[in-house]
């Protein structure tokens, strides 16, 4: 129960962190490409890669990994917002932009998680 509440709290903190970062990026980025969600997801994937490698090599215990990945990064990264930005780009007939965003959102976070894994597994 204590662990469940801790995961919830970490998720709340992740959501607040996303709100702050999202608002700060949108303040200076005024193009149609949804840069803020993209950056947030890439950062989250990179951190998740580090955490997964750290857990895999037993650098951190499972509880820490759970709090960080399922809690904080789960609240921080978002799938629904990215998908809805794709749908709204499609709806305003920005097909090229929607396709580019789709490919980038599939590819770059994956590369980020691989990079994070590589960073996290240094020295093993």
């Amino acid at each position: 129960m204590g662990q469940f509440l801790l995961v919830c709290c970490c998720g709340g903190l992740g959501a607040v962190a996303r709100f702050v970062l999202n608002t700060s990026i949108q303040r200076w980025w005024n193009r149609i490409f949804p840069l803020s969600t993209f950056i947030i997801n890439v950062v989250a994937a990179f951190l998740a890669g580090i955490a997964a490698a750290a857990y895999y090599y037993q650098t951190v215990p499972y509880a820490t990994y759970l709090l960080f990945v399922a809690g904080f990064l789960g609240g921080f990264s978002t799938f629904s917002t990215a998908i809805n930005e794709m749908v709204s780009l499609l709806k305003v007939r920005q097909l090229g932009m929607a396709g580019a965003y789709f490919l980038l959102t599939v590819a770059i976070p994956f590369l980020a998680v691989v990079l994070g894994w590589w960073v996290g597994s240094r020295g093993h």
Binding site: A48, A52, G74, P109, F110, V113
Partner: peptide, 24 residues
């Protein structure tokens, strides 16, 4: 929009866990 959309839906969905599952 902020509480339900950004908070609940954003916290419920996750891309990072999916990416970790992918790398696994």
């Amino acid at each position: 929009g902020r509480g339900i959309g950004m908070g609940i839906c954003g916290g419920f969905s996750t891309l990072s866990a999916m990416m970790v599952e992918d790398i696994t």
